[in-house]
Design a protein around this nucleic acid. Sequence first.
DNA 1: AAAACCAATAAAATTTTCTAATCAAATTGT
DNA 2: ACAATTTGATTAGAAAATTTTATTGGTTTT
Lengths: 304, 304
Amino acid sequence: MLSDSMRVFITVADKKNFSKAAKALSLTQPAVSFQIQTLEQYYQTMLFDRVNRHVKLTAAGELLLDYAVHMNNLQAELERNMQQLTGHVKGELLIGASTTIGEYILPYVVGSFKHDYPDVNVTIQIMNTKDIANAIRNKTFDLGIIEGPLDHSESMEVHKFLEDELVLAIPADHPLASKESITLDELKELPYITREPGSGSRLIFEQALIDADFDIENLNVVMELGSTTSIKSAIMGGLGISTISKWAIQDLLKTGKVAALNIDGLTLKRNFNIILNKEKFQSEATGKFLDFLDVDNINRILES
Amino acid sequence: MLSDSMRVFITVADKKNFSKAAKALSLTQPAVSFQIQTLEQYYQTMLFDRVNRHVKLTAAGELLLDYAVHMNNLQAELERNMQQLTGHVKGELLIGASTTIGEYILPYVVGSFKHDYPDVNVTIQIMNTKDIANAIRNKTFDLGIIEGPLDHSESMEVHKFLEDELVLAIPADHPLASKESITLDELKELPYITREPGSGSRLIFEQALIDADFDIENLNVVMELGSTTSIKSAIMGGLGISTISKWAIQDLLKTGKVAALNIDGLTLKRNFNIILNKEKFQSEATGKFLDFLDVDNINRILES
DNA sequence: AAAACCAATAAAATTTTCTAATCAAATTGT
DNA sequence: ACAATTTGATTAGAAAATTTTATTGGTTTT
């Protein structure tokens, strides 16, 4: 166990700001000031230059940080070994996830995981792919699950997760609902609800249309909505139809309220990917969660 | 900085006894119990088997000790680097020394050292060579200074320190006091005061007599005393003469109260040696003290 | 069987750490 | 230039943690 003052020091060095470090540690700023002063008195030297607007490590601060980080890593390693030895897995698990995964898949997975490992505190943060990648790079998050691929980057580890497929969601009482698939010509006639520009689902759909030499202008777009949930509501309200992740409409499919159709000639598949920072020491909780993300296990969970 | 509970844990693991660890840490036994319980609750496992009469590390305890020691070493290294960087040398310095060194040389050396490094807390413990060697092996002491050589041992580092010489101390008003040296025949007639059997000085003297083919029985032993100081008093009281380290009678020589004579045909020289544990990380205080023990420096100090 | 040893526990005292409230200095925006 | 904002230091009081004192119960030793 590292001393508290060291943990505070590492955070300040990271944030370069006493107040922000305090927030990150759930402390008040004076508490942080106090801990840093304690260290500075102990080592009889300034650890930070309090220069306008931000603080900067002194040479002594750099030296201390070096050792502090090293000790912190040792501590993490110890923690993992101890949990493996005793079987008591615990700690924090921070996951960054894209919308569909975070809203429609992870809640069930985490529920099941918490059943097996009740002392692991799981936090799911829903963000876009770029922010997730950054948080993984920073080691702020333990793992990320993104929709689609990641621009290649050093020190990132990518694992395939589930396969996703956009399907055409149609209200169950719609005349076309009984079909297996429809053609692009049939699609043209239907009132289509689209996601906002830049959304991953929209990009996939439009790219597939381009690949199929279909002019997007021919779509009968009746509405643009900013979230999967609002699109689902709109479909249920009979306002139109849309292409949407099969995972996002599991509930509606099960209760028979919507039908999922394929569109002839369009491939709307993509992969969900798990991303990790190779250089981050993984806690036992992260390790167990990764084991848990095994596709067979996930299917078992999502079916029940 | 290691947390307090870790420091307590290391001590208990070392002493295998809560109460003794408490004493070593200047705490009470319940405080130690509390710290260990805190760790055990944190890791959700027993760290010690409380078995009759002593405590024993569990597997989890062994694991923790491993990391605790590693972190402790890192901390010591950090401390040294920080002190080198800032120039603020401080901390504890525990020295084990043989009698003559501890009583007649080190006090002056330490006085001078404290002048240069006031924040280093120096403790001199006077013990016999065997105990000093053990304490160095245990890493309980930072360095030892012994009279005579050390039975060779792995992981021990030996440095030559000052040269010592036993001289015949005679009251200044004695008829022979004006001579440079006396013969063994002359010595036979003088009332000789001896140290207890097993004493280093006595061994050296007797070995020299054997080497010179002189029968010890021929000595006119009038008294046996257990310390250098008591022998000095006895000599001053005119009760007899004795062979004694030249360092031990510096004061009496300077004030002209005794004379130091050589004995023809006897070599009564030996070396003081500094011993260190190669595997112990040396603090900056130890490093600076070793620099201080440079022979030229010592002579300078002892002359003033 | 009595004495000695050892760790656990409970409650009180103490020390350490934290928060709330303010302050002063520096920066930013207008 | 001036008000608003940001940032860390300071101080007093509150809260939390650690430690001590005192005591108990279980072993082992004598």
